[in-house]
Amino acid sequence: MDIKLREVEYRYAAGTPFERLAITEVSFDIPSGGYTAIIGHTGSGKSTVLQHLNVLLKPLKGEIQIGSRTIAAGRKEKNLKEIRRRVGIVFQFPEHQLFEETVEKDICFGPVNFGVSEGEAKERAREALALVGLPEHVLERSPFDLSGGQMRRVAVAGVLAMQPEVLVLDEPTAGLDPRGRHDMMEMFASLQKEKGMTCVLVTHSMEDAARYADRIVMMHKGRVYKTGTPCEIFSDGPDLTAIGLDVPETVRFQRLFEEKLGRPLGHLCLTPEELAREISRLRGES
């Protein structure tokens, strides 16, 4: 399911003295089956864009196409549930949304709201829990007795159990320790690769964007600053730093190495593994 944003504008507290322009003239596409990263400084409008993807916010100008539905500014929209089932959002610190007595009930909350039978929802809860790497006995426990990292996984399972076609992730690893961060990012990547799920990642981590995404949308001051492949985006270091973003560590190191080498490497390496291979290959040649 493709998502297309066309000239989208949104203002918070529109028509009050507290009015604030959040995003304007935002247009970009999220192709089905791809992994799109939205990067930008805090306050660049990333989170506002994200909430439009399942119509938690409706554009004040412009329109959004979500699959075959078009959400246009100024129109009353009914029956948004179908969209929300197909576009799942994992918010930042999703463990804050847990509320049920047991992990199982909490994971079932989404599926049941979308009309899935109880039996089927429980089946899905089991599957989702396995996907996030938690043992089955956790199902009967209270989510509030779990550790922070486990709560995060349960909350993610709650969204996965909805079996969305598009998975939108807002800083899903914020506050996790390095191992937790790595495991979770790998899980999303495998969902995208193996199950063909469309992933949209909102992140501050240029490393994650470089490693996982195949398309990048750069936001700055409420507008789309640039879109492109990771290679296109990250090869222009000065452009990134101009809007307060970092160059991925790998790219920074590659540049340093190229300086020493006196010539550029054949292509831009996006992960340390790739860079290590490239340097090793070069050594073989020389």
Binding site: Q51, R85, I89, F109, M162
Partner: peptide, 12 residues
Amino acid sequence: KIMKAQMARGAD
């Protein structure tokens, strides 16, 4: 935030 998170999970 919580309202939106639950709405994203189909709450009405």
